[in-house]
């Protein structure tokens, strides 16, 4: 299996506060990794380290055969930080996904415009093409950003809490789509909703300052405890012995 990302002995700190410490992780082609952990445990920081958005104190993030993740990685950020009132159209947001590998004088080819339309079509939002992002609902916004992440056909798709802002219907639709996409690319999915993602992911990483790799999507409460990964479990009725399981 081809190795896409290799994280070795990674330590990241913000103003002397260590967020991630001695983290090792490998992401291989067609992996589907669920990243779980408590709030503030470093899940988003791990993604940002892969994307080159945070300063690394120690260790390395390697993309075998490439100098960086640009062009290989598609990224769906948390939407809280996006200014929804910014004057930009859906079509331009999606096309910004082509930026990797372009000169600063960005021009788009006919093929790229076609590809952007095709991705919008596949996501079922072709009719929103000319809309400003300010007129979209949360679910539509997520789809647009997913289009942006996918338009350049990345090898690795990284999603940070894609289930915020969306209704249940879109959520299950999204996970089904990810399952399809996983046939062509590796996926890293950060979520606090452990129960839901368990049936879709193949492997799990528990991140709480340290990272514990769990090579299966079935994980027990005891294992979570031993991984030092206290997460709030949404349970129905009796607390099940096995907290994550294929439904």
């Amino acid at each position: 299996m081809e190795k896409l990302v290799e994280i070795k002995n990674l330590t990241v700190a913000y103003e002397n506060q260590v967020v991630l410490e001695n983290v090792d992780l490998e992401i291989n082609d067609l992996d589907f990794l669920g990243v779980i952990g408590p709030n503030g445990g470093g899940k988003t920081t791990l993604l940002k380290a892969i994307l080159g958005l945070v300063k690394i104190q120690n260790g390395q993030v390697i993309f075998p055969g490439h100098t960086s993740g640009v062009g290989i990685v598609g990224y769906l950020p948390q939407l809280q930080k996006i200014d929804f009132k910014f004057p930009i159209t859906v079509f331009d947001v999606v096309r910004s996904g082509f930026v990797p590998g372009k000169s600063l004088m960005v021009r788009f080819s006919k093929e790229e415009n076609k590809r952007a339309d095709q991705v919008l079509e596949e996501m079922g939002i072709a009719h929103l093409r000319r809309k400003p992002v300010g007129e979209l609902s949360g679910g539509q916004m997520q789809r647009v950003f997913l289009c942006r992440a996918l338009v350049s056909s990345p090898r690795l798709l990284i999603l940070d809490e894609p289930n915020t802002y969306v209704d249940n219907k879109f959520e299950s639709e999204l996970y089904e789509r990810l399952r399809e996409l996983n046939k062509e690319m590796a996926i890293v999915l950060v979520s606090h909703d452990v129960g839901t993602i368990a049936s879709y992911v193949k492997t799990i990483a528990c991140v709480n300052r340290n990272l514990y790799y769990h090579p299966s999507n079935i994980i027990t409460a005891e294992q979570l405890t031993s991984y030092n990964c206290p997460i709030q479990l949404i349970t129905h009725g009796e607390i099940p012995h096995t907290v994550l399981h294929t439904h």
Partner: peptide, 23 residues
């Protein structure tokens, strides 16, 4: 005119721009 899209993408989502190594 020369840098329209680069200006637009950085102004809209600077983190995404940074991840894609835009200046």
């Amino acid at each position: 005119i020369l840098f329209f899209h680069t200006i637009l993408f950085i102004a809209f989502d600077s983190e995404f721009a940074k991840a894609n190594k835009l200046p």
